[in-house]
Amino acid sequence: MQLTLEFGGGLELLCDSEKIHKVNVDLPNGADDLTMKHLLSWVRTNLIKERPEMFMKGDTVRPGVLVLVNDCDWELSGQLDTTIEDKDVIVFISTLHGG
C-alpha cells in the first residue's frame, strides 16, 4: 500500500536527511491489515540508515518521539495497534527543546 512517511525534529538525519518518503509497504504474510507495529519495523529496516537507537527503543519509538497518523497522535488510535490504510500519512517527529 502507498504511504507517505515524514520525519522531523532531527529524525530526518537518520534517513539520509530526507524528510518525506513516499513508500510502498506490503502487508505482512498472512496478515489482513498493516499495523503501526509492523510499519515501525519496516521503517527501521528500510529507511533508518544510522543510529537506530535514536529512532526506536524496544519495539516502539524512543522517548521524545511523537507519532502522528493522518495528523493525529497515535495515542488516540491505539499506538502500535493502529491500523494503517492506503494513502495514509504518518509523521515521526522528535520533540525540540531549543529556544
Partner: peptide, 11 residues
C-alpha cells in the same frame, strides 16, 4: 513525554 528523551536527542 512521560519519559525524557536520551541526552543525545537533545540538541
Amino acid at each position: 513525554f512521560p519519559t525524557p528523551p536520551p541526552t543525545t536527542a537533545c540538541q
